[in-house]
Design a protein around this nucleic acid. Structure first.
Length: 273
DNA sequence: AACGGGGGCAACCGCCGCTTG
DNA sequence: CCAAGCGGCGGTTGCCCCCGT
């Protein structure tokens, strides 16, 4: 399908946003939400294309954006997640609350890639847990070709959970050993003891219904104010680990790990071993 | 003080997949 | 089933600032 770029329309402004434009966009979205990005600039009185507005909002103006330098913990998380997910910045961003895909992408290209290249001659020790988990994921998906592979075709949106909700198949196909879980713990938590139950906890049905009922929009994180709240886990209590990584509480952690596995398992760029 | 190069980051571009009529 | 509309994503660009000379 061939379509003209949305900003090709005459008279639409490009380039850096002014504080005035920002204010117009913010107050419009606070008032009416952003149901239709294409129509938004016209309705708000902005000489911008919808895409530009969306980008500005997502990457800069949202109230839940965390500004400022990335912490060491966040950088490590990015490196680790990148190893598992590849250049899927939105998937990585979904696991770093308050950070945007654009920001993460920039940090990767300007800081982390160089740092990794520098360190590539050093020890491969830091990579070990990820090679291990990649192998684990591969083995699991081999043993469960149909349901896993079909669901892995679709990457869940960064702002909502995967539609794959067959928790029974998850618990059977993602059966893990203590050793597996030790590996997983190593990925996320180097210095902290974290207890996992013997098996992945099953997701309480009420989790889904509660999430879906909020805002009545089908998006668990679209609130009644009409705004999208970025953090995938913002609707429930989270646990902040000493690496600055936010993971959901135990009820949500099932989804977290499952989502991570699906993402990694479905990633075509999953490193070979 | 002036200038050039490099790095960082906001924003744009083009493609893709989903939805809708 | 198909085409168009739309949101979302990743790659890329270009501007601005800082630092070294």
């Amino acid at each position: 399908m061939v379509r003209a770029p949305c900003c090709e329309k005459m008279g639409l402004k490009k380039g850096p946003w002014t504080p005035e434009e920002d204010q117009i966009l913010i107050s419009y979205i606070e008032k009416y939400g952003h149901g239709n990005w294409r129509a938004l600039p016209k309705q708000a009185g902005l000489l911008r294309c919808g895409k530009s507005c969306r980008l500005r909002w997502i990457n800069y103006l949202r109230p839940d954006i965390k500004r400022g330098n990335f912490t060491k913990e966040e950088e490590e998380a990015i490196i680790n997640l990148h190893e598992m997910l590849g250049n899927r910045w939105s998937a990585i961003a979904a696991r770093l609350p308050g950070r945007t895909d654009n920001e993460i992408k920039n940090v990767w290209h300007t800081h982390l890639k160089k740092r990794l290249t520098k360190n590539s001659h050093g020890s491969s020790e830091s990579k070990a847990p990820f090679s291990a988990i990649s192998k684990l994921i591969s083995q699991k998906s081999l043993s469960e070709p149909e349901s896993m592979s079909s669901s892995s075709q679709q990457e869940p949106s960064s702002s909502e959970f995967s539609s794959v909700t067959d928790t029974n198949s998850v618990t059977t196909t993602m059966e893990t050993t203590i050793e597996d879980k030790a590996i997983m713990n190593n990925i996320m938590i180097k210095n902290e003891t974290m207890e996992f139950s013997e098996d992945f906890p099953e997701i309480d049905e009420s989790f889904w219904s509660e999430a879906l009922s909020d805002g009545n929009s089908g998006n668990p994180f679209e609130f009644s104010d009409g705004l999208q709240h970025q953090s995938s886990f913002s609707s429930s209590e989270s646990v902040e680990l000493n690496r600055g990584f936010i993971i959901p509480n135990v009820d949500d952690s099932m989804e977290f790990w499952y989502d991570l596995f699906i993402s990694a398992g479905g990633a075509p760029e999953l490193p070979e071993f």
